[in-house]
Computed example of a mutant assay.
Amino acid sequence: MNTDAVLTLTQWLSPGFPVGAFAYSHGLERVIDAGGITSVATLEPWLRDIIRHGCGRSDLVLLRVAYDAGDEEVARIDAQAQAFSASSGRLTETCDQGAAFSRTVDAVWDTRLGTLTYPVALGRAAKLRGLPQDLTAAMYLHAFTANLISAAVRLVPLGQTEGQDLLARLAPLITSIADATAESTPDDLTSACFAADIASMQHETQYSKVFRT
């Protein structure tokens, strides 16, 4: 494995990379506010479903399809990613993080990503920089999961050690879903996390909130 690729992806997907990931809870803030998540035991099944059946999987499909796409196909895939967003909050989440990611990568690595949704931008950037697709997918899903755990640690609240223990337990699932989405096509784009989608919609009108989504 190319060390430069690992270091580049670690930089792109670190909490310090300026995409503003800390400001998004993916609807978890609404679930926590309603009492649906009160501990690691109640957080874990939510995250497992999101990874296996929700945006965890669908984002990897979009990332992989964007990685394999020709230049003329990227805009169509990005439009599909926007249309697939289940709520205004989800659209904000993927568009704003993608735009911030693209701006920074374009400035530092001299790419020409333009403005893309987050998984499409990452897949495209990885392709342009010659980074391994499988590693990119696994590290993206790991960072996505870590960010949701970080949101729950702050909101529930949970202990930092509890959060890290949960992330370690989810690692095999993350690897499994990353492997399962290899060779994806646009026809594989699907989601079945309706409770999480509804929570995201409800968050848009929540009276008091810390997170943008």
Rank of each mutant, 00 (worst) to 15 (best):
residue 89 G to C: 06
residue 90 R to H: 04
residue 91 L to G: 05
residue 92 T to D: 11
residue 93 E to W: 06
residue 94 T to A: 07
residue 96 D to N: 14
residue 97 Q to L: 10
residue 98 G to W: 02
residue 100 A to P: 06
residue 100 A to H: 08
residue 101 F to D: 00
residue 102 S to E: 06
residue 102 S to W: 03
residue 102 S to A: 15
residue 102 S to R: 05
residue 103 R to Y: 07
residue 103 R to G: 03
residue 104 T to R: 11
residue 105 V to D: 00
residue 106 D to K: 09
residue 107 A to M: 10
residue 107 A to P: 01
residue 110 D to S: 15
residue 110 D to K: 15
residue 110 D to I: 07
residue 111 T to S: 13
residue 112 R to C: 09
residue 112 R to P: 00
residue 112 R to W: 02
residue 114 G to S: 11
residue 114 G to P: 06
residue 115 T to W: 05
residue 116 L to F: 08
residue 116 L to R: 10
residue 118 Y to H: 14
residue 118 Y to R: 09
residue 118 Y to W: 11
residue 120 V to I: 10
residue 122 L to G: 00
residue 123 G to E: 00
residue 127 K to R: 15
residue 127 K to M: 13
residue 128 L to Y: 03
residue 128 L to N: 09
residue 129 R to F: 05
residue 129 R to G: 09
residue 129 R to Q: 14
residue 131 L to P: 00
residue 132 P to M: 09
residue 132 P to R: 08
residue 132 P to D: 10
residue 134 D to P: 00
residue 135 L to Q: 09
residue 136 T to Q: 04
residue 136 T to K: 02
residue 137 A to N: 03
residue 137 A to S: 14
residue 137 A to C: 10
residue 138 A to E: 08
residue 138 A to H: 03
residue 139 M to T: 09
residue 139 M to F: 08
residue 139 M to A: 07
residue 140 Y to D: 00
residue 143 A to D: 02
residue 144 F to Y: 13
residue 144 F to M: 04
residue 144 F to Q: 02
residue 144 F to E: 01
residue 145 T to R: 04
residue 145 T to W: 04
residue 147 N to C: 05
residue 147 N to T: 09
residue 148 L to A: 12
residue 148 L to S: 06
residue 148 L to F: 05
residue 148 L to V: 02
residue 148 L to W: 00
residue 149 I to D: 01
residue 150 S to G: 11
residue 152 A to V: 06
residue 154 R to Y: 12
residue 155 L to W: 04
residue 155 L to G: 04
residue 156 V to C: 12
residue 156 V to S: 08
residue 157 P to W: 10
residue 157 P to S: 12
residue 158 L to A: 09
residue 159 G to F: 11
residue 160 Q to I: 10
residue 160 Q to C: 04
residue 160 Q to P: 00
residue 161 T to A: 15
residue 162 E to C: 12
residue 164 Q to G: 13
residue 166 L to W: 04
residue 168 A to V: 14
residue 168 A to S: 15
residue 168 A to E: 15
residue 169 R to E: 11
residue 170 L to R: 06
residue 170 L to N: 04
residue 172 P to C: 09
residue 172 P to N: 08
residue 173 L to G: 06
residue 173 L to N: 07
residue 174 I to M: 07
residue 174 I to L: 11
residue 174 I to V: 13
residue 175 T to N: 08
residue 175 T to S: 12
residue 177 I to W: 05
residue 177 I to L: 10
residue 180 A to N: 10
residue 180 A to W: 05
residue 182 A to Y: 12
residue 184 S to M: 06
residue 186 P to N: 13
residue 186 P to C: 13
residue 186 P to D: 12
residue 187 D to H: 11
residue 187 D to V: 09
residue 188 D to E: 11
residue 189 L to G: 03
residue 190 T to W: 07
residue 190 T to A: 13
residue 191 S to E: 07
residue 192 A to R: 13
residue 192 A to Q: 11
residue 193 C to N: 07
residue 194 F to I: 11
residue 196 A to Y: 00
residue 196 A to R: 00
residue 196 A to W: 00
residue 196 A to G: 12
residue 197 D to M: 07
residue 201 M to P: 01
residue 201 M to H: 06
residue 202 Q to K: 11
residue 202 Q to I: 03
residue 204 E to S: 12
residue 205 T to Q: 13
residue 205 T to R: 14
